[in-house]
Design a protein around this nucleic acid. Structure first.
Length: 672
DNA sequence: GCTTTACTAGTTTTT
DNA sequence: CTAGTAAAGC
């Protein structure tokens, strides 16, 4: 095993973070300051100091992130591979499984993903008669959000309603009733949803004898992206560290972008208050970006009401000035970027070190077309998730039923697939399934109904085949696919694409041994991102450029970054405009996007919007349209002069009422 | 009464 | 692309 001299490879603050092993520690780590490196080496250092790898718990934002850090540490020392890592949710699941008896679960736990729990809430609202009144009742997703928010922020339903949807305040009694019904429903059906995982974990940790056991098992806790934890998660961290106090959290308050999910960046400031002897370290030396890029980043968040804790600096003084470009419409913006990417590629920048970032998924559609035209390989991060597509959900329902034969939501979905079966019939059949020992008995009285007997028989046949205990998940999925294919063909025009999805689902499934493991990964925790969109682009062997929402770009970096659609209404997104705090978060979003870039940064907007069918003239994002930011950007007026003729670009691009030279030129340019 | 079909509207970000 | 709704069809 080779010796590592941490002092030589780390800067003083990083070194301190890596070598402070005992006691509470808060690391405030700006973008690109080597946070991942610190975690990597601290894990390594703990192990070199004799700590058992399996007693280190590394909680991260995604499982991919923890995998990556553990893998990197493992390059230095194989033992690191045994470090316990994952998301709060995956850790919670692990513990819940261990203590399932304490929690009252017997054997089969079924998982509700977001859509499932929304469906369940819809079902319950119908049962409670909230939907057949004249007053408008919230939509199922809204209900889900309200309830989820109250749990994640640790506040009651009324508080959430007051803040987020005051127009439903009159219905608070009903919503609370619904919440109670939902809890009962979950308990009766052995369902748990995302929020329950955290709640149950906290419940367990609050019992002294369990806390003692867990604390002695995990004696060193590390938490990444602490600014994006919610109150509940923070409580869990406090509990985990309560006995041994060995907790290190890393975060950056300027990069908090998940408050819509209940994230509470003030956890960063709470932490030192919770742990009396907490040490605080700041990492401000940025190794990622050039100075001109950092200048833009710092300018975007400079002088805001919300004072941030640090300013980034770098030694990379040299660098190309970031550009700001205007286009007539999204098409031209996309064409420009596709061509620019080609150009960068010719200059020797690989496709895989180029990223294009945007606020909302639909912002990337024109670009996807433009890239396809130029044969540039790309993958899309985020977007409609593989597991959330209708066909995958359909197929997974069969697997869910195998895991928990009374899974009402899954049965409902399966039965509704049959021609001639609607909600009513599905409900009736489900009741029979509940009350019968076998499907043969349950289906008996329905088999005579001509409307759907043929389909029902086919379904029964499928489940007969499942009785073979030797079948693994992969072969079960193949059977399901055979059954489902004709249905899919009728249901979707693009069934061949979806069929490819199912094929890759089957392929992935071969990595799992049990149905439960498979479902936990797929439905509850982190499913693979592969989906139809990517299937288009699999041909090329070149590693593709990345198109990503800013949210999904968290923690990533590229040599060259494009940030597109920088308009009012897109970033900040129109929904955020109502309150100050949301706008602030949108600003941080831009900050996160800018700091992903190492050496080249291209900002752009387009003037004419065609979204939603209504034609509109877009204005430049307020975050860019400030003198201090514009000053840091290169704007090629000559080029636009030319484009103006080509593109007839004379429409309004709004700028500050400030008469600096920069702005005057902008005014001139846009014929003001 | 129940299901299917045809149409409309509205789409943030994700464990 | 999908959720929700109104109206047609069995």
């Amino acid at each position: 095993m080779k010796e590592i001299n941490f002092k030589n490879i780390l800067n003083p603050s990083q070194y301190k973070a890596v070598t402070t092993l005992e006691g509470p520690l808060l690391v405030v780590a700006g973008a690109g300051t080597g946070k991942t490196r610190v975690i990597e080496y601290r894990v390594l250092n703990l192990i070199l100091s004799g700590v058992k790898p399996s007693s280190i718990l590394l909680l991260t934002f995604t499982r991919k992130a923890s995998r990556e850090m553990i893998d990197r540490a493992s390059c230095h020392n194989k033992l690191c591979q045994q470090v316990e890592g994952g998301t709060f949710h995956s850790f919670a699941y692990k513990i819940i499984k261990q203590y399932r008896k304490v929690l009252g679960f017997k054997n089969n736990i079924s998982f509700l993903d977001e859509a499932d729990s929304a469906d369940a809430l819809h079902l319950l609202s119908t049962k409670l008669g909230f939907l057949d009144r004249k007053i408008r009742f919230p939509k199922k997703n809204t209900l889900k959000n309200i309830i989820s928010m109250s749990i994640n922020r640790s506040v009651n339903i009324t508080t959430v309603l007051e803040k987020d949807c005051p127009h439903f305040l009159d219905l608070k009694g009903d919503i609370e009733k619904l919440h109670k019904a939902y809890i009962d429903y979950k308990v009766n059906h052995l369902f748990i949803d995302y929020d329950d995982m955290l709640l149950y974990l906290k419940f367990l940790l609050e019992r002294d004898e369990i806390l003692e056991k867990i604390s002695s098992r995990f004696s060193y806790i590390m938490v990444d992206e602490f600014q994006d934890t919610n109150k509940l998660q923070a409580e869990i961290v406090y509990l985990l560290g309560k006995i041994h106090q060995n907790v290190m959290v890393v975060g950056d308050d300027t990069q908090s972008i998940y408050s819509f999910r209940g994230a509470y960046y003030k956890n960063m400031f709470e932490f030192p208050k919770r742990f009396a002897n907490c040490k605080i370290l700041k990492l401000e030396h940025n190794y990622r970006s050039t100075q001109p890029i950092l200048d833009v980043a710092n300018a975007t968040i400079e002088g805001e009401k919300q004072k941030y804790t640090k300013v980034l600096f770098t030694v990379n003084k040299e660098g190309v000035m970031p550009e700001l470009n205007f286009f007539k419409d999204s098409q031209r913006e996309a064409d420009f970027i596709a061509n620019k990417i080609k150009q960068l590629y010719d200059q020797g920048i690989e496709f895989s070190s180029i990223g294009v970032l945007y606020r909302s998924n639909h912002n990337s559609l024109p670009l996807q077309l433009a890239l396809s035209r130029l044969d540039i390989p790309f993958i899309v991060y985020g977007g409609i998730r593989f597991v959330e597509t209708a066909h995958v959900k359909d197929v997974l329902s069969f697997v869910k039923v195998l895991q928990n034969k009374h899974d009402e939501l899954a049965w409902n979905r399966i039965l509704m697939l049959l021609e001639g079966v609607g909600p009513r019939t599905a409900e009736k059949i489900y009741q029979c399934i509940l009350n019968s020992h076998s499907l043969d008995v349950a289906f008996k009285e329905f088999l005579s109904d001509k409307k759907f007997s043929k389909e029902l028989k086919r379904l029964l046949k499928l489940f007969h085949k499942f009785k073979d205990k030797d079948l693994n998940i992969t072969s079960r999925l193949r059977l399901i696919k055979d059954f489902y294919f004709p249905i899919m063909k009728k249901k979707f025009d693009n069934y061949h694409l979806r069929s490819d999805d199912l094929r890759s689902l089957i392929q992935i499934s071969s990595e799992y041994r049990t149905v439960e493991e498979f479902l936990v990964d797929f439905v509850a925790l982190e499913a693979p991102e592969r989906s139809m969109v990517d299937m288009f682009q699999k041909k090329s062997d070149e590693r593709p450029i990345v198109l990503s929402t800013i949210h999904s770009a968290k923690g990533l970096e590229w040599e060259a970054v494009f940030i597109i659609s920088l308009m009012e209404g897109c970033l900040p997104v129109s929904y955020s405009l109502e309150d100050e705090e949301s706008i602030e978060e949108e600003r941080r979003l831009l900050y996160v996007a800018v700091t992903r870039a190492k050496s080249r940064l291209f900002l752009s907007m387009h003037n004419q919007g065609q979204n939603g069918g209504i034609f509109s003239f877009n204005r430049l994002s307020r975050f860019i349209n400030e003198k201090k930011v514009l000053d840091k950007l290169h704007i090629d007026y000559k080029k636009f002069e030319k484009q103006k003729d080509d593109y007839d670009l004379v429409e309004s691009v709004d700028v500050n009422q400030d008469d600096s030279a920069t702005l005057r030129r902008l005014y001139d340019y846009f014929d003001y």
